[in-house]
Write a protein that binds this DNA or RNA. Structure first.
Lengths: 204, 204
DNA sequence: TATTGTTATACTCTATAACTATA
DNA sequence: TATAGTTATAGAGTATAACAATA
Protein backbone atom coordinates (compact mmCIF):
# COMPACT_ATOMS: atom_id res chain seq x y z
CA UNK A 1 0.00 0.00 0.00
CA UNK A 2 2.65 2.48 0.99
CA UNK A 3 5.70 1.13 -0.78
CA UNK A 4 5.63 3.36 -3.81
CA UNK A 5 7.94 6.21 -2.99
CA UNK A 6 10.72 5.15 -0.69
CA UNK A 7 13.20 2.29 -0.42
CA UNK A 8 12.40 2.27 3.31
CA UNK A 9 15.52 0.26 3.84
CA UNK A 10 17.62 1.88 6.52
CA UNK A 11 15.73 2.20 9.72
CA UNK A 12 18.46 0.07 11.22
CA UNK A 13 21.14 2.68 11.60
CA UNK A 14 22.53 2.01 14.99
CA UNK A 15 20.61 0.07 17.56
CA UNK A 16 19.41 -2.94 15.60
CA UNK A 17 22.80 -3.54 14.08
CA UNK A 18 25.26 -2.80 16.84
CA UNK A 19 23.34 -4.02 19.83
CA UNK A 20 26.43 -4.02 22.03
CA UNK A 21 26.94 -0.67 23.77
CA UNK A 22 30.33 0.74 22.83
CA UNK A 23 31.49 2.99 25.67
CA UNK A 24 31.97 1.52 29.12
CA UNK A 25 31.08 4.80 30.75
CA UNK A 26 34.39 5.93 32.08
CA UNK A 27 36.24 8.28 29.74
CA UNK A 28 33.25 8.85 27.42
CA UNK A 29 32.46 12.13 29.08
CA UNK A 30 32.15 14.66 26.28
CA UNK A 31 29.93 13.09 23.63
CA UNK A 32 26.93 10.95 24.43
CA UNK A 33 25.67 8.47 21.88
CA UNK A 34 22.05 9.34 21.08
CA UNK A 35 21.40 5.94 19.52
CA UNK A 36 18.15 5.78 17.61
CA UNK A 37 17.20 9.22 18.91
CA UNK A 38 19.52 10.64 16.27
CA UNK A 39 17.20 9.13 13.65
CA UNK A 40 14.04 9.83 15.58
CA UNK A 41 11.91 12.50 13.93
CA UNK A 42 9.93 13.06 17.13
CA UNK A 43 12.99 13.66 19.27
CA UNK A 44 14.63 15.93 16.72
CA UNK A 45 11.38 17.83 16.10
CA UNK A 46 10.97 18.46 19.80
CA UNK A 47 14.55 19.61 20.20
CA UNK A 48 14.37 21.91 17.18
CA UNK A 49 11.01 23.30 18.27
CA UNK A 50 12.35 24.11 21.71
CA UNK A 51 15.37 25.87 20.21
CA UNK A 52 13.27 27.90 17.77
CA UNK A 53 10.72 28.83 20.43
CA UNK A 54 13.52 30.01 22.70
CA UNK A 55 14.64 32.45 20.04
CA UNK A 56 11.04 33.46 19.38
CA UNK A 57 10.34 34.14 23.03
CA UNK A 58 13.53 36.14 23.42
CA UNK A 59 12.72 38.14 20.30
CA UNK A 60 9.15 38.91 21.40
CA UNK A 61 9.98 39.49 25.06
CA UNK A 62 10.01 43.27 24.62
CA UNK A 63 6.42 43.08 23.36
CA UNK A 64 5.43 40.54 26.05
CA UNK A 65 3.91 38.24 23.44
CA UNK A 66 4.08 34.46 23.56
CA UNK A 67 4.06 32.22 20.48
CA UNK A 68 0.42 31.20 20.96
CA UNK A 69 -0.63 34.83 21.38
CA UNK A 70 1.18 35.79 18.20
CA UNK A 71 -0.58 32.97 16.37
CA UNK A 72 -3.98 34.25 17.45
CA UNK A 73 -3.18 37.80 16.41
CA UNK A 74 -2.03 36.62 12.98
CA UNK A 75 -5.08 34.44 12.41
CA UNK A 76 -7.58 37.02 13.60
CA UNK A 77 -5.81 39.74 11.66
CA UNK A 78 -6.06 37.85 8.40
CA UNK A 79 -9.47 36.27 9.10
CA UNK A 80 -11.57 38.93 10.80
CA UNK A 81 -15.00 37.89 11.98
CA UNK A 82 -14.18 34.23 12.52
CA UNK A 83 -15.70 32.42 15.47
CA UNK A 84 -13.60 31.40 18.45
CA UNK A 85 -14.07 27.75 17.63
CA UNK A 86 -12.83 28.29 14.09
CA UNK A 87 -9.71 30.11 15.18
CA UNK A 88 -8.94 27.67 17.96
CA UNK A 89 -9.42 24.73 15.58
CA UNK A 90 -7.10 26.33 13.04
CA UNK A 91 -4.44 26.53 15.74
CA UNK A 92 -5.14 23.08 17.17
CA UNK A 93 -6.07 24.64 20.50
CA UNK A 94 -9.04 23.23 22.36
CA UNK A 95 -11.79 25.80 22.62
CA UNK A 96 -11.75 25.43 26.38
CA UNK A 97 -8.07 26.43 26.53
CA UNK A 98 -8.63 29.13 23.96
CA UNK A 99 -10.77 31.16 26.36
CA UNK A 100 -8.03 32.40 28.74
CA UNK A 101 -5.69 32.83 25.79
CA UNK A 102 -8.17 35.15 24.11
CA UNK A 103 -8.80 36.85 27.44
CA UNK A 104 -5.14 37.80 27.72
CA UNK A 105 -5.37 39.54 24.35
CA UNK A 106 -8.74 41.16 24.92
CA UNK A 107 -7.70 42.44 28.35
CA UNK A 108 -4.79 44.20 26.65
CA UNK A 109 -7.12 45.73 24.11
CA UNK A 110 -5.67 43.89 21.14
CA UNK A 111 -8.62 41.69 20.17
CA UNK A 112 -12.37 42.22 20.48
CA UNK A 113 -15.15 39.69 20.87
CA UNK A 114 -18.18 40.91 18.96
CA UNK A 115 -21.64 39.44 19.01
CA UNK A 116 -22.34 37.51 15.83
CA UNK A 117 -25.71 38.56 14.39
CA UNK A 118 -26.41 35.29 12.64
CA UNK A 119 -25.68 32.99 15.58
CA UNK A 120 -25.98 34.61 18.97
CA UNK A 121 -24.04 31.82 20.59
CA UNK A 122 -20.81 32.65 18.82
CA UNK A 123 -18.36 35.51 19.11
CA UNK A 124 -16.87 37.09 15.99
CA UNK A 125 -13.24 38.00 16.56
CA UNK A 126 -11.60 41.18 15.31
CA UNK A 127 -8.36 43.03 15.95
CA UNK A 128 -8.66 46.43 17.52
CA UNK A 129 -6.77 49.38 16.07
CA UNK A 130 -4.22 48.83 18.81
CA UNK A 131 -4.05 45.15 17.91
CA UNK A 132 -3.52 45.91 14.25
CA UNK A 133 -0.76 48.38 15.08
CA UNK A 134 0.95 45.90 17.38
CA UNK A 135 0.71 43.13 14.81
CA UNK A 136 2.56 45.34 12.35
CA UNK A 137 5.38 45.74 14.84
CA UNK A 138 5.34 42.06 15.72
CA UNK A 139 5.66 41.15 12.07
CA UNK A 140 8.94 43.03 11.96
CA UNK A 141 10.18 41.07 14.95
CA UNK A 142 8.95 37.87 13.38
CA UNK A 143 10.87 38.61 10.19
CA UNK A 144 14.07 39.07 12.17
CA UNK A 145 13.42 35.85 14.04
CA UNK A 146 12.65 33.84 10.93
CA UNK A 147 15.64 35.29 9.13
CA UNK A 148 17.91 33.92 11.84
CA UNK A 149 16.53 30.48 11.07
CA UNK A 150 17.16 31.04 7.38
CA UNK A 151 20.71 32.04 8.19
CA UNK A 152 21.13 28.83 10.15
CA UNK A 153 19.68 26.47 7.53
CA UNK A 154 20.34 28.34 4.33
CA UNK A 155 17.43 29.64 2.32
CA UNK A 156 16.97 26.41 0.41
CA UNK A 157 17.15 24.35 3.57
CA UNK A 158 14.63 26.62 5.23
CA UNK A 159 12.25 26.21 2.29
CA UNK A 160 12.69 22.44 2.33
CA UNK A 161 12.03 22.36 6.06
CA UNK A 162 8.75 24.25 5.72
CA UNK A 163 7.64 21.93 2.93
CA UNK A 164 8.49 18.80 4.90
CA UNK A 165 6.84 20.07 8.06
CA UNK A 166 3.69 20.84 6.10
CA UNK A 167 3.78 17.24 4.95
CA UNK A 168 3.40 16.15 8.57
CA UNK A 169 0.25 18.17 9.17
CA UNK A 170 -2.43 15.94 10.68
CA UNK A 171 -0.08 12.97 10.67
CA UNK A 172 -0.81 11.32 13.99
CA UNK A 173 -4.27 12.78 14.42
CA UNK A 174 -3.34 15.00 17.37
CA UNK A 175 -5.31 18.01 16.35
CA UNK A 176 -6.44 19.59 19.58
CA UNK A 177 -9.91 19.59 18.13
CA UNK A 178 -12.92 18.70 20.17
CA UNK A 179 -14.68 15.91 18.33
CA UNK A 180 -18.08 16.78 19.83
CA UNK A 181 -16.80 16.48 23.42
CA UNK A 182 -16.36 12.71 22.91
CA UNK A 183 -18.41 11.91 26.03
CA UNK A 184 -18.91 8.16 26.30
CA UNK A 185 -15.53 6.47 26.56
CA UNK A 186 -14.00 4.04 29.07
CA UNK A 187 -11.65 5.70 31.59
CA UNK A 188 -8.61 4.30 29.76
CA UNK A 189 -5.74 3.17 32.00
CA UNK A 190 -5.20 3.07 35.76
CA UNK A 191 -2.03 5.21 35.47
CA UNK A 192 1.34 4.39 36.99
CA UNK A 193 1.72 6.77 39.87
CA UNK A 194 5.14 7.48 41.28
CA UNK A 195 5.77 9.02 44.64
CA UNK A 196 9.29 9.17 45.86
CA UNK A 197 10.10 7.76 49.31
CA UNK A 198 13.71 8.44 50.24
CA UNK A 199 16.00 6.36 48.04
CA UNK A 200 19.73 6.54 48.90
CA UNK A 201 20.87 4.57 45.84
CA UNK A 202 22.51 1.48 47.25
CA UNK A 203 25.85 0.42 45.94
CA UNK A 204 26.25 -1.91 42.97
CA UNK B 1 28.85 37.68 8.52
CA UNK B 2 25.99 35.41 7.69
CA UNK B 3 25.24 36.38 4.08
CA UNK B 4 27.23 33.64 2.42
CA UNK B 5 24.77 30.84 1.80
CA UNK B 6 21.26 32.15 1.22
CA UNK B 7 19.68 34.85 -0.91
CA UNK B 8 17.49 35.61 2.13
CA UNK B 9 15.14 37.41 -0.17
CA UNK B 10 11.61 36.19 0.32
CA UNK B 11 10.54 36.53 3.88
CA UNK B 12 7.74 38.68 2.52
CA UNK B 13 5.45 35.97 1.31
CA UNK B 14 2.09 37.11 2.47
CA UNK B 15 1.69 39.61 5.22
CA UNK B 16 4.12 42.32 4.22
CA UNK B 17 2.93 42.30 0.66
CA UNK B 18 -0.82 41.83 0.85
CA UNK B 19 -1.64 43.65 4.04
CA UNK B 20 -5.37 43.76 3.29
CA UNK B 21 -7.19 40.73 4.68
CA UNK B 22 -8.95 38.86 1.85
CA UNK B 23 -11.98 37.12 3.35
CA UNK B 24 -14.67 39.17 5.04
CA UNK B 25 -15.49 36.37 7.43
CA UNK B 26 -18.81 35.21 6.11
CA UNK B 27 -18.57 32.34 3.66
CA UNK B 28 -14.89 31.64 4.36
CA UNK B 29 -15.77 28.77 6.63
CA UNK B 30 -13.71 25.85 5.42
CA UNK B 31 -10.18 27.17 4.95
CA UNK B 32 -8.56 29.66 7.27
CA UNK B 33 -5.66 31.77 6.04
CA UNK B 34 -2.67 31.03 8.25
CA UNK B 35 -0.84 34.15 7.08
CA UNK B 36 2.81 34.22 8.10
CA UNK B 37 2.27 31.14 10.24
CA UNK B 38 2.45 29.12 7.03
CA UNK B 39 6.07 30.31 6.68
CA UNK B 40 6.80 30.20 10.38
CA UNK B 41 9.27 27.45 11.26
CA UNK B 42 8.29 27.61 14.93
CA UNK B 43 4.59 27.16 14.29
CA UNK B 44 5.13 24.36 11.79
CA UNK B 45 7.68 22.64 14.01
CA UNK B 46 5.24 22.68 16.90
CA UNK B 47 2.41 21.35 14.80
CA UNK B 48 4.53 18.59 13.30
CA UNK B 49 5.98 17.66 16.67
CA UNK B 50 2.51 17.35 18.17
CA UNK B 51 1.37 15.13 15.31
CA UNK B 52 4.42 12.88 15.51
CA UNK B 53 4.20 12.61 19.29
CA UNK B 54 0.54 11.64 19.02
CA UNK B 55 1.51 8.71 16.85
CA UNK B 56 4.40 7.88 19.16
CA UNK B 57 2.21 7.89 22.25
CA UNK B 58 -0.43 5.76 20.57
CA UNK B 59 2.23 3.32 19.39
CA UNK B 60 3.85 3.01 22.83
CA UNK B 61 0.60 3.00 24.79
CA UNK B 62 0.62 -0.77 25.12
CA UNK B 63 4.01 -0.54 26.83
CA UNK B 64 2.95 2.49 28.91
CA UNK B 65 6.05 4.41 27.85
CA UNK B 66 6.13 8.12 27.15
CA UNK B 67 8.52 9.79 24.70
CA UNK B 68 10.77 11.15 27.45
CA UNK B 69 10.92 7.74 29.12
CA UNK B 70 11.89 6.12 25.86
CA UNK B 71 14.63 8.70 25.39
CA UNK B 72 16.10 7.90 28.77
CA UNK B 73 16.05 4.16 28.12
CA UNK B 74 17.80 4.64 24.80
CA UNK B 75 20.47 6.91 26.22
CA UNK B 76 21.15 4.78 29.28
CA UNK B 77 21.12 1.64 27.14
CA UNK B 78 23.79 2.95 24.84
CA UNK B 79 25.75 4.87 27.46
CA UNK B 80 25.78 2.72 30.59
CA UNK B 81 27.39 4.21 33.66
CA UNK B 82 26.72 7.83 32.80
CA UNK B 83 25.78 10.22 35.56
CA UNK B 84 22.23 11.57 35.85
CA UNK B 85 23.42 15.06 35.03
CA UNK B 86 25.08 13.82 31.86
CA UNK B 87 22.01 12.00 30.64
CA UNK B 88 19.65 14.81 31.52
CA UNK B 89 21.90 17.33 29.77
CA UNK B 90 22.01 15.14 26.66
CA UNK B 91 18.21 15.19 26.61
CA UNK B 92 17.92 18.90 27.49
CA UNK B 93 16.03 18.00 30.64
CA UNK B 94 16.83 19.94 33.80
CA UNK B 95 18.36 17.68 36.37
CA UNK B 96 15.64 18.68 38.80
CA UNK B 97 12.94 17.43 36.43
CA UNK B 98 14.98 14.40 35.59
CA UNK B 99 14.60 12.97 39.10
CA UNK B 100 10.91 11.96 38.95
CA UNK B 101 11.38 10.84 35.35
CA UNK B 102 14.13 8.47 36.43
CA UNK B 103 12.05 7.43 39.43
CA UNK B 104 9.27 6.25 37.15
CA UNK B 105 11.72 3.98 35.34
CA UNK B 106 13.52 2.76 38.44
CA UNK B 107 10.24 2.03 40.22
CA UNK B 108 9.31 -0.22 37.30
CA UNK B 109 12.64 -1.99 37.53
CA UNK B 110 13.92 -0.81 34.17
CA UNK B 111 16.81 1.40 35.28
CA UNK B 112 19.12 1.24 38.27
CA UNK B 113 20.96 4.00 40.06
CA UNK B 114 24.32 2.70 41.19
CA UNK B 115 26.77 4.44 43.45
CA UNK B 116 29.71 5.78 41.50
CA UNK B 117 32.94 4.72 43.20
CA UNK B 118 34.96 7.69 41.99
CA UNK B 119 32.51 10.41 43.02
CA UNK B 120 30.12 9.42 45.76
CA UNK B 121 27.82 12.31 44.94
CA UNK B 122 26.84 10.97 41.55
CA UNK B 123 24.74 8.03 40.46
CA UNK B 124 25.83 5.84 37.57
CA UNK B 125 22.86 4.75 35.50
CA UNK B 126 22.39 1.29 34.04
CA UNK B 127 19.57 -0.67 32.47
CA UNK B 128 18.40 -3.71 34.34
CA UNK B 129 17.91 -6.99 32.50
CA UNK B 130 14.22 -6.16 32.41
CA UNK B 131 15.01 -2.73 31.05
CA UNK B 132 17.23 -4.16 28.34
CA UNK B 133 14.55 -6.62 27.34
CA UNK B 134 11.90 -3.94 27.23
CA UNK B 135 14.11 -1.64 25.20
CA UNK B 136 14.44 -4.37 22.60
CA UNK B 137 10.67 -4.56 22.32
CA UNK B 138 10.33 -0.79 22.30
CA UNK B 139 12.80 -0.54 19.46
CA UNK B 140 10.48 -2.67 17.35
CA UNK B 141 7.61 -0.29 18.13
CA UNK B 142 9.83 2.66 17.40
CA UNK B 143 10.74 1.24 14.00
CA UNK B 144 7.06 0.89 13.11
CA UNK B 145 6.41 4.42 14.27
CA UNK B 146 9.34 5.91 12.42
CA UNK B 147 8.44 3.95 9.30
CA UNK B 148 5.02 5.59 9.24
CA UNK B 149 6.81 8.95 9.12
CA UNK B 150 8.97 7.72 6.28
CA UNK B 151 5.86 6.60 4.44
CA UNK B 152 4.41 10.07 4.91
CA UNK B 153 7.45 12.03 3.77
CA UNK B 154 9.15 9.59 1.47
CA UNK B 155 12.52 8.20 2.42
CA UNK B 156 14.45 11.08 0.90
CA UNK B 157 12.19 13.62 2.54
CA UNK B 158 12.59 11.87 5.87
CA UNK B 159 16.39 11.94 5.54
CA UNK B 160 16.31 15.61 4.60
CA UNK B 161 14.12 16.39 7.57
CA UNK B 162 16.49 14.72 10.03
CA UNK B 163 19.41 16.60 8.54
CA UNK B 164 17.64 19.95 8.70
CA UNK B 165 16.44 19.36 12.25
CA UNK B 166 19.96 18.50 13.32
CA UNK B 167 20.98 21.84 11.86
CA UNK B 168 18.73 23.56 14.38
CA UNK B 169 20.34 21.93 17.40
CA UNK B 170 21.29 24.59 19.94
CA UNK B 171 19.88 27.33 17.74
CA UNK B 172 18.12 29.57 20.22
CA UNK B 173 20.10 28.48 23.24
CA UNK B 174 17.17 26.73 24.92
CA UNK B 175 19.03 23.73 26.15
CA UNK B 176 17.37 22.84 29.42
CA UNK B 177 20.82 22.85 30.92
CA UNK B 178 21.50 24.27 34.30
CA UNK B 179 24.26 26.84 33.84
CA UNK B 180 25.47 26.48 37.43
CA UNK B 181 22.07 27.28 38.91
CA UNK B 182 22.35 30.85 37.61
CA UNK B 183 21.51 32.30 41.03
CA UNK B 184 21.93 36.08 40.94
CA UNK B 185 19.54 37.53 38.40
CA UNK B 186 16.88 40.23 38.54
CA UNK B 187 13.32 38.86 38.80
CA UNK B 188 12.66 39.74 35.15
CA UNK B 189 9.17 41.07 34.42
CA UNK B 190 6.07 41.81 36.51
CA UNK B 191 3.93 39.46 34.39
CA UNK B 192 0.55 40.30 32.86
CA UNK B 193 -1.98 38.50 34.98
CA UNK B 194 -5.42 37.75 33.60
CA UNK B 195 -8.38 36.83 35.72
CA UNK B 196 -11.70 36.58 34.01
CA UNK B 197 -14.66 38.50 35.50
CA UNK B 198 -17.87 37.73 33.61
CA UNK B 199 -17.67 39.18 30.15
CA UNK B 200 -20.85 38.87 28.05
CA UNK B 201 -19.25 40.17 24.84
CA UNK B 202 -21.12 43.34 24.02
CA UNK B 203 -22.37 43.88 20.51
CA UNK B 204 -20.36 45.67 17.83
C1' DT C 1 -30.42 16.92 20.55
C1' DA C 2 -26.29 19.56 19.08
C1' DT C 3 -23.28 23.59 19.22
C1' DT C 4 -20.78 27.74 21.35
C1' DG C 5 -18.56 29.65 24.89
C1' DT C 6 -17.45 29.11 29.51
C1' DT C 7 -15.91 27.40 34.23
C1' DA C 8 -13.64 24.24 37.05
C1' DT C 9 -10.29 21.00 37.48
C1' DA C 10 -6.47 17.83 36.83
C1' DC C 11 -2.41 16.24 34.71
C1' DT C 12 1.97 16.92 32.29
C1' DC C 13 5.87 19.59 31.28
C1' DT C 14 8.95 23.09 32.47
C1' DA C 15 11.34 26.52 35.60
C1' DT C 16 13.42 28.42 40.10
C1' DA C 17 14.97 28.29 44.86
C1' DA C 18 16.92 25.92 48.42
C1' DC C 19 18.58 22.03 50.79
C1' DT C 20 22.15 17.63 51.59
C1' DA C 21 26.17 15.37 50.91
C1' DT C 22 29.97 15.27 48.89
C1' DA C 23 34.12 17.28 46.45
C1' DT D 1 33.29 27.37 46.99
C1' DA D 2 31.40 24.28 43.60
C1' DT D 3 28.96 20.09 42.05
C1' DA D 4 25.29 16.07 42.05
C1' DG D 5 21.12 14.80 43.43
C1' DT D 6 17.03 15.97 45.61
C1' DT D 7 12.76 18.41 47.33
C1' DA D 8 9.23 21.73 47.02
C1' DT D 9 6.81 24.74 44.39
C1' DA D 10 5.18 27.60 40.73
C1' DG D 11 4.04 28.29 36.10
C1' DA D 12 2.79 27.15 31.54
C1' DG D 13 0.36 23.90 28.34
C1' DT D 14 -3.01 20.52 27.65
C1' DA D 15 -6.93 17.38 28.88
C1' DT D 16 -11.90 16.12 30.37
C1' DA D 17 -16.50 17.05 32.51
C1' DA D 18 -20.25 19.86 33.06
C1' DC D 19 -23.00 23.90 32.61
C1' DA D 20 -25.95 28.01 30.34
C1' DA D 21 -27.43 30.01 26.29
C1' DT D 22 -28.70 29.25 21.84
C1' DA D 23 -29.61 26.63 17.67
Amino acid sequence: MTDSHAPRSNLRHRSAQTSAPPPTGQEADAAIDLGVLGQSAGFLLKRAQMAVFADFIATFATADIRPAQFSVLVIVGRNPGMKQSQVSAALSIKRTNFVPLLDSLEDRGLVKRKMAAADRRSHALHLTAKGTALLTELTVLWTQHERRIQDKLGHDGWTQLLRLLNGLENFGGATGLDEADVADLPPAKPKTRTRRVAKPADAG
